[in-house]
Each structure stands twice: as structure tokens, then as C-alpha cells.
Design a protein around this nucleic acid. Structure first.
Lengths: 338, 338
DNA sequence: ATGAAAGCGCTAACAC
DNA sequence: GTGTTAGCGCTTTCAT
């Protein structure tokens, strides 16, 4: 009893039921302009009645467009990328695109392989904090449209945070507290953003006549704290700017263990404003990026390059504002009797 | 000059070059058993030379299988789900499946819509912390295979955390510190896991002869803290068990603002062991779940139900262990003179 | 074990 | 505007 589970209606079923050609039904769904208003309304109504839903796979095979894009990040669980993912997800949904997520495990090989694996299944890629070389990226970009987040590679669409302004904000903030020098606890050597951060800090320090020294590389994690602190303290620094918030929090922990007070003895600054920066102890002064915006913007940049829009050469790199969030980990330079 | 950008080789190109039929090439790739070892090797070599890569879209259209599954979570940026996402991503990759990520924005309507939108594009769904009703879920499951994470719905594949054991661990821990009662600061009324948590806490408290009271619902965020604290303090509780870590951290903040020390005056316990629980102040005692395992397990459960395996009725709900991470937010019951 | 042929459901020229 | 006619690249009976 009960009818056999109905086969899903196809475009042809709708065409037949509506008394029109298949192509007309197709147009009703994808070329609203190129069809008579009345026939379109009719077709849509019949489709509705039949419970017809276009089959995206068949659409893709016919058109060559999958209406799917991939987002690749080095580590899904890193809260820094959560914002990028969310922003990209929103923008993709808004553009009617499906988002495939890939975790590259901070691994260039895995990243390249993922690109190969998904190439045919998606219309393009958004790659966040890519570990590939510029050449590898450009090679991949010849086969699929690519947009980059926080990585500038000539010839590709890029969305990056304004580290020039951001680092200046940090240096100005420290200077206003009377600091005359600071130490930069660096992260991984290959990190593009790490290089930009140090570059900006140096430039801003020079402008202010401050002394800036770089230590490291350290692991950009809580675990990187001890090594960074031991080096920084030995140098007599009054302020430590850390490659990212995780390292900064690790640094604060280690400072506490060693009996140093933050910010009374040493000020600490991070980058990213990750989830947690507002409730660690003390709360962390850090440079916030608009990660969700970056993700969304990158998707938009990518959409520009998709088959139908095929905007040949896309404009310059998009730079997103950053802003310093001043919290409890920074304070006046300590008065030291020596 | 220079050859025109070559059209990508198709299965037919390979067939022709190898001197076999298209179907033989197809088998070489997807039915290793049903083909002569030597011809297979030959075909594969020719394919390799030509740089042939199967087109997943065409495979999907022909076979009806997309080799893609969707993972739906209420909020991508919530660190609690990061583990689930990562685990699912790994398991999917291991099974040769592509993972599509969807953010339901904690919204039943958005969730249902997302299922509709992706239904045709994926082979099945993993839904984490679904907000749909059991009936809605079962209806959806008639059209696509579904596996659930932290939500048990009869008839569907489910992977849940062992809250019975977990809540007992919490209660035992508090009892060992001399607490005779505690307050549960509840989260959203519709939360399945919230209900399980309270249920378990009550049962464990009863076993131990402890008194347990529930307050709330409160927002499961930092912002939910003040309201929860104000109610809990008024009740004279010596321990507050919170719906999740975010609420717990919010609670600790509010307690500090009101001049109460943790754990000297009040002990605080959370659920989830989110990123941040280990560096908030004080560090948070919380029940850890194996979220990555849950995500991976759910994918495996889903794979069982996929077209080819079509395991009719899947076994009982999978229960994943939980363990209490004891940190600084819990301590001996205060001695109060009254 | 292999080949031939018929689609999968839709899009896209091209006519009318 | 709308219908006709071919495919898109692969899988899958069904023969052999």
C-alpha cells in the first residue's frame, strides 16, 4: 500500500506538464530576462506543483559551472580562521554559492593536493594564509580562479589586513606609555603576515625613534611563551609585541610564573584579537583584524573572476583596516633604578 | 605561437589513446576488480601520460553519487564546533569524500533551508546540535542519509557524548570537595544537550544525596554570566555548574566584579573544555568532550548509510566518553559562619 | 573481461 | 520568445 517512493521530477517532467519545451523550463529558472513573463510564471507554478528542484549536478555538467567554491585554511580549529570561514560562508551563501571547506594542516603539500583534488569540483578557490610559493599559486591560478586572504601575490586577487597602520598603532600606543624600545617575539619564518608585522613594527619604531629588536622564531602557540619570555626578560625589555595572541597569552603565563607583573613590569601586545583575548589574565591588548570581512571580501573578489564575469585583470590588493584593542596587558613603562 | 591551452583530456581521449572502449577506462578507475590487471595498468599509464583526471561532476551525474557530504553546525565561530568540523573534515577526506560546510546560524529555519538547498548536491548530511524537531529530522532522513552529533533521534544514526558519566564525574568532584549542593545555570530551553546535562546532574546529585537546583535559562555566552550570578549568589550556592564554558567564564567574571573569589567563595564548573578554558582566570574546571572524534564518528556512521553500503537500520546510538578536566575554578566548600 | 549503446538532467547554440 | 537538436563526461546495463 502507499505509492512507491516517487522518482524526483526532472526538467522534462515539468516541460511536459507545462506544455513547453525543456529549454523554456531551463530559461524560466536561469534566464528570467529571456522569457515571456506569463510563460515563466506558468512554468514556475507547474514546477512548484510537481515539487521540481533543479539538479545542481546536471546543471554543472551542462554549463561547466558548479556554483561551488572552496575555502582552504591552514587549521580549522584555529580561532583566527573562524572569522574568515564565517565571512566566506555568508558571502558565498549570499552569492548563491556552496562553500567547500578544506583544512591544509599548515602543510604546503596537503594544500597543493587539496587544490588538485577539488579543482574540477569547484569554480574557484579562496585560500587563506597560503603556504604555497608565489609561483605555485600562479600556476594553480591558471587553471582555477583564486583569491587570497592575508597573502599578497602579484597577479592574484588578494585581501590583506592593513599591517602598516596596525603596527603603527601598536608602536604609538607603546610610545604614549613612555616605552623607548620593545622586543618582537616572532613566529614561523615562512609566515607572510609575520614578515609584514615585523616590517611594519620596524618602520614605525624608526619613525618614533624607538628601538625594536626581534627574537625567535617561536611557536605561535601557548607553548611558545616560555622561550620567548626567557629571551625577552634577559634583554631587559619593557614591552613585548608577540607574533600572535596565542604566543602573547603564553608569554603572559610565563611572565607570571617567573614573578613578573603585566603590565607593571612588562607590557604585552598581541596580534589577531582571538576569542579569549578578552578574558585571559590580564586581558590582552591586541591588534584586531576584520577577519569575517576578509573572508567575505575574498569571496567577492573571487566571484569577479568566475566564468561569467571573467573580469580579466582584477584591481589592486584590497587592504582591510585593523584597529588596536587596548586592554589590560599594556601600561606605563616601569621606572627602573639602575 | 605556442599551443592553444589544451582542452582537458576526457575519458574518451584516454580510451582512444589506449585502444579500448570508454567503459573499460571507466572500470579501470572505479571497478578495479572487474578488469584485467594488465589492461588496467595499461589504461592507467595512458591516463597518466595524458594527464587525465576524472570529472567529478560527470561521475556524479552518471552514478547519482556526488561523493560529497554536508556538515551543518549552528555556529562556525563557536570553538565548541571547531573540533567537530575538524574531525569530520579528516574522516571525510579519509573516505575520499568532499565536505561542504553549512552554518545554520542557530536557526531552525535556516537549517531546514540549508538541507533543502544541499539535498541534491550531497550524498548525505552530518548535523551537529540540530535545532530541528525529531519529526522534521526523520522527514529529511527519508530523502537523504543523515547522521546526528549530540542529538539522539530514534531511527537516525547518532553520536553523542556520555553525559551520564560526565555529570556524575562533576558531582563526585564537587562532593569530594565537601559541597552539599549546587546550582545549575541552564542554557537555551531547546538545547538537547542542555536537557541531558541537567538530567544527569540531577540523577547524580540524588545518588550522592546532594541538593541540585536549576536556574535560567541564560544565554550560553559570556553575556549570560551576570544574570546567572545574581540568581546563584542570592541563593547562597557554594558551587555553580554552568550550561557551557562561555557561560561559566561569564559567571566567573561577574563573580569577580561582585567581589566573590573563585574557588574560595564559590566553585564554578563548565561544559565543553573550549579553547580558552585553560587560560581564563582562574582556569576552568570543565567536562571535556571528544568533539573531533564525534565529528569523525558521525561521518563514519553516515558513510554506512550511503547508497552503496545502504546498511538498512544502523545500530544503537554511539556514546563517546567524556572526562572532567579539573583546574583552578573548583575547590573546597567554604566554611561559612551563620 | 571487454565493447556497444543508451542515458543521467540539464544547458546552449541555432533555427523559427 | 520559444522549440530543436546536440552534446557535457561519465556510468551502466546488456551483449559478446
Amino acid at each position: 500500500m502507499g505509492p512507491v517512493p516517487q522518482r524526483r521530477p526532472t526538467l522534462n517532467d515539468v516541460a511536459e506538464a507545462a506544455g513547453v519545451a525543456a529549454s523554456t523550463v531551463s530559461r524560466a529558472f536561469t534566464r528570467p530576462q529571456r522569457i515571456n513573463h506569463r510563460t515563466r510564471a506558468h512554468v514556475l507554478r507547474v514546477a512548484e506543483e510537481l515539487g521540481y528542484v533543479p539538479n545542481p549536478t546536471a546543471q554543472a555538467l551542462g554549463s561547466g559551472r558548479t556554483r561551488t567554491i572552496a575555502l582552504l585554511v591552514p587549521d580549522i580549529t584555529n580561532p583566527y580562521f573562524s572569522g574568515v570561514i564565517k565571512g566566506a560562508e555568508r558571502a558565498a551563501a549570499a552569492a548563491g554559492l556552496t562553500l567547500v571547506l578544506g583544512d591544509t594542516a599548515e602543510n604546503p603539500t596537503a594544500e597543493a593536493e587539496l587544490v588538485r583534488r577539488l579543482e574540477r569540483a569547484v569554480d574557484g578557490f579562496v585560500i587563506s594564509a597560503s603556504r604555497l610559493t608565489d609561483d605555485e599559486l600562479r600556476a594553480a591560478a591558471e587553471r582555477s580562479p583564486i583569491a587570497l586572504v592575508n597573502r599578497a601575490t602579484a597577479g592574484l586577487g588578494c585581501v590583506v589586513a592593513d599591517y602598516d597602520s596596525g603596527t603603527r598603532q601598536i608602536v604609538d600606543h607603546l610610545a604614549s606609555y613612555g616605552h623607548r624600545s620593545f622586543v618582537f617575539a616572532g613566529g614561523p619564518a615562512e609566515s607572510w603576515s609575520g614578515a609584514r608585522r615585523w616590517h611594519g613594527l620596524q618602520a614605525a619604531a624608526a619613525e618614533k625613534g624607538m628601538e625594536a629588536r626581534r627574537f625567535g622564531p617561536y611557536m605561535p602557540t601557548l607553548g611558545g611563551g616560555p622561550a620567548a619570555v626567557d629571551a625577552a626578560v634577559a634583554s631587559g625589555a619593557t614591552a613585548v609585541v608577540c607574533h600572535n595572541d596565542m604566543l602573547a597569552i603564553g608569554v603572559m603565563r610565563r611572565l607570571a610564573e617567573r614573578g613578573h607583573r603585566v603590565p607593571e613590569d612588562v607590557s604585552v601586545v598581541g596580534f589577531d584579537d582571538v576569542f579569549g583575548a578578552e578574558f585571559c589574565q590580564p586581558t590582552l591588548t591586541t591588534l584586531a583584524e576584520r577577519t569575517a570581512d576578509a573572508g567575505a571580501r575574498a569571496v567577492e573578489v573571487l566571484v569577479q573572476q568566475l566564468p561569467h564575469r571573467q573580469t580579466e585583470v582584477e584591481g589592486p590588493t584590497r587592504v582591510l583596516p585593523t584597529h588596536l584593542v587596548v586592554r589590560g596587558s599594556t601600561g606605563p613603562v616601569p621606572v627602573r633604578d639602575e
